[in-house]
Design a protein around this nucleic acid. Structure first.
Lengths: 193, 193, 193, 193
DNA sequence: CATGAATGAGGATTCATTCAT
DNA sequence: AATGAATGAATCCTCATTCAT
């Protein structure tokens, strides 16, 4: 992809994030996104297969940033506990800082067909695998208990964090999300030991 | 509500559960639900405000059964740990036994506006409060640690269970959901102590 | 079909004939036809499967009238020659009297997929068979020659009449169509003897 | 037109014939024709005014070949009857040999606006005039009857042949088209005498 | 209470055509 | 002469909801 194409691709993605966060996925007409991005309606379809593809691409792109952020902040020398803390911290911070993105991931992205849910599942996989990687490492170095079911536990951890974010969002962000990091991770660590 | 009305109300709800589970919320036309229930299209609107109201009512009704089940199975004499185990067990069992209901609650019900999400949140509240009630009891009788943030933890527990169910569903139910109960609760208990 | 339904069905058909004749099939929006018929857009779809179905139904309906007209005007006692004359006369007269219908059958109806052409072919079949019936009768009573290939000839006759109508229409109806009946039939009769 | 231009013009025409025969006129995107011809989309518009112009040009070009073929095969010394036979024979043979062309002329070319129909009429004119020329010659040399309406008859003959071709095409070419020449011309000759 | 015919708003997508390079 | 990225107009059909019977 040329940088010219890449540039326009991201313009549309930014526009989509804004419009979808404000109006919801079903409430966001392609024409509206095009206008916000400053391109013609038809141009959207030179970069995305269809409307749903915009949503998927948006999610993949943003999740990529999250994973990127993990790579930059978590070193292999960090203990499993520290790594888990950082993951939760980055996760909560990112969404608290970017309320548009939070709406899209927690509310709009869920308004999707089973088909789409599976595609999203694929995109989330690297993240969930990262959590499992840390769990395995913790078990190996003795930080966590031996009999830990890492496949199940990675889901428990992801699901717990996800619910905290959604509850915070639905509450109208009346409290600090990042303030929940310590207790959340504490709960996890205890469960893991 | 007369029993005559009540009866038809439930006929429509049963029809809706079946149709929505098979076709998804957006794929379920009111006309289709009416036909399945054996009533005229217009009749639906004598019992429900609109299409979304069917979904909410369905959820409330089924959640009522779940809470009912808790009341019948959990006694005040049960220890907090036992109660938590039963909650998770009943939760997983109910959805494993009723795949239609599982689809509706985990997939279709999420395909909804922020508005609807709030209504659903209201319906889930008693359940989440039940979890918190157990947590508080556990703290009180010394089963759980004193400094537990019960508001946050009830979300963590609910979110973790919810994610396990959704993952199981999206996987295509390739493994037993109830088989996850023991490890799931174990993780919670450790986190709570 | 109740007479209530039948009535609305024909209202829509009449509206479609008018609108399509004036604007062509591709130039006729369903909304426009609905407005002309005095019904809502959606109502159209209670009576017709889709836009193309309106065109097919229109053709079938009008062709039915034509065949009806033949039945009323041609008696079994008529000689084959007389019958052929009447057919051509009724055919030309009907289209000359109803220029809207002429446009639809000669121009718009041809603007169609191979699929549709086959459907139209089915509708025309009774008419072409009627021509063949007359040819066979003429051969039987000695009016026409024995070695006549009736399958081929019915096509020659239908195609010849069809072309005369289309040419007249494209010319802008600068001359009388019915004035061509005598010479047209004369040509046929000679070819048949 | 330079031979360079001429060459590319014909490349596009060949591509159009192939694509339109396979997908129909409405199903043939300009981009598809361009790709088949190995040129850029925009290049098409250096050689043709618009999409419809491609169809007209294609028809004119192919009809030119037909008339060319007549000139090469019909001599002024041929009797009117012989000439008529040759015309029908060449007409049927050409289309039977080139099924792509047959689809385009009999089906796709008819899917057109009144506007286009008139342009096609212009292109067909030389052919119809050729038929009339033969009729006049036949009347002059006494082969055909004196009172023949040559304007009408040329239409009857053209329409009859056209219908035979279309019927053969829609039938799925289940029988030989050229096998119909003898009986077809026989019918004409009788009608002309 | 119940019916079901009628309504009509609403939107993703295609594709012929243009024009800056 | 040629390119091909960008344009943006244009429309069929669905389906939640109503209301006269």
């Amino acid at each position: 992809m040329t940088s010219r194409k890449q540039e326009k691709f991201e313009m549309i993605l930014d526009a989509a994030e804004k419009v979808i966060a404000e109006n919801g996925f079903h409430g966001s007409q392609v024409a509206r996104i095009a206008k916000e991005a400053g391109v013609a309606d038809g141009t959207i379809y030179l970069y995305f297969k269809n409307k749903e593809d915009i949503l998927i691409s948006l999610f993949q792109n943003r999740l990529g940033s999250l994973v990127e952020s993990f790579k930059n902040n978590i070193s292999e020398e960090d203990s499993a506990e520290e790594a888990l803390y950082k993951i939760c911290d980055i996760h909560f911070s990112l969404l608290e800082e970017n309320i548009h993105l939070a709406y899209v991931t927690q509310i709009e992205l869920r308004q999707s067909s089973l088909e789409l849910r599976k595609a999203i599942g694929q995109a989330v996989k690297p993240y969930i695998q990262l959590i499992e990687h840390i769990l395995i490492k913790g078990v190996a170095d003795g930080s966590f208990r031996r009999n830990l079911d890492t496949r199940l536990t990675r889901q428990l951890i992801f699901g717990a964090m996800d619910e905290v974010v959604t509850s915070w969002l639905i509450s109208g962000q009346k409290y600090s999300l990042t303030a929940q990091v310590a207790n959340t991770v504490d709960f996890f660590i205890r469960g893991l030991k």
